[in-house]
């Protein structure tokens, strides 16, 4: 039985003009969003200022911006 790899990370998350530090266990923005209970379909992600797929790997201390998709009317 191999031991499961634990990947703790801390990133800066900007969401709705607020910035907070989030610690989580994972490798990708998708893991981070899961921890924050955010559906990946309802947001776009910028990593260090650039749009990236949520499946992209992130690094410790990366700056992640979560952009909510607003349904206009």
């Amino acid at each position: 039985m191999g031991r499961q790899k634990v990947n703790f990370m801390q990133v800066k998350v900007k969401i709705q003009e607020k910035i907070e530090k989030v610690e989580f266990n994972g490798e990708t923005t998708e893991d981070l969003l899961k921890k924050m209970n955010i559906n990946t379909e309802s947001v776009l992600i910028k990593r260090n200022g650039k749009f990236v797929p949520v499946e992209d790997k992130i690094k410790n201390m990366d700056e992640i911006e979560v952009i909510n998709i607003v349904s206009s009317g």
Partner: peptide, 11 residues
């Protein structure tokens, strides 16, 4: 998808 219309507009 809405996600893609938003991304295109922003990009």
């Amino acid at each position: 998808p809405e996600k893609e219309t938003t991304l295109y507009a922003m990009l």
